[in-house]
Amino acid sequence: MPTSRMRIEVASENSFIIYFNDHIAAHTSAQISACAACLRQSMGPLLVDMVPSYASLLVIYQAHLTDHYEVKGLIAQALTQVQDEATSTGKLIYLPVYYSQESGPDLPLLAQAANLTVADTIALHHSMAYQVYAIGFAPGFAYLGEVDQRLAAPRIATPRLKVPKGAVAIADRQTAVYPSQSPGGWNLIGLCPTPMFNPDQDPPMPVSVGDQIKFEPITRAEFLQQGGDEQLLLEPIA
């Protein structure tokens, strides 16, 4: 039986949201990925779409092919199967990052707040693997967590109008790579030359929810060699 923490709630006329837990945890994320895989199998054409997130899974179904009783039954069945899922079955993906003050203008302030040197701040960010908890906000925007408590920084007071494509950023205990240029309020610490969203490629994203990511520090030269945009370094991010 599903644990008492797991709840299935109606979300709309054609969707349920499954709550797995009330806080962020790697094993919860593993259960969500396993449950999504299970439902993709058992629901087949009844499934329209799913949105996995930190501790929940939104399941949207074809209401004209089925009803909420059947879907709720299939969800309950999937939950019993993912009960013991404790470890992620996702891939481990390495993403290169050029950490520096010219590519990450918020590094000095972050280091100051953490009472660390800039070099130690950078080392702390790439010392651990991060879980991909959710994808949303914009196409290809992956929410990764959790960063070391010392690096947890609130969003900046005045969001930037232009955060460049590839910017590696921190907000609270989350970190992310901006998939395209957009406004944003996260703290910028580096640039990643790997495209996070390319609609002309299959798959369009190098990562999925449930994967793990490790950042690898690279030099300025390596950044440019791997396709990084030199313009971003010539006109430093304000």
Binding site: A11, S12, E13, N14, S15, I17, D22, H23, I24, M50, V51, P52, S53, Y54, A55, S56, L57, L58, I60, A134, G136, F137, A138, Y143
Partner: peptide, 26 residues
């Protein structure tokens, strides 16, 4: 915690004023 938003969801932010989320929602 951020979670999936379906079509038609009625979000109530701190100001208590409803927002009905439509086709191009996040």
């Amino acid at each position: 915690l951020s979670e999936g938003i379906c079509h038609g969801a009625i979000q109530i932010p701190a100001d208590g004023q409803p927002i009905v989320l439509l086709n191009d929602r996040q």
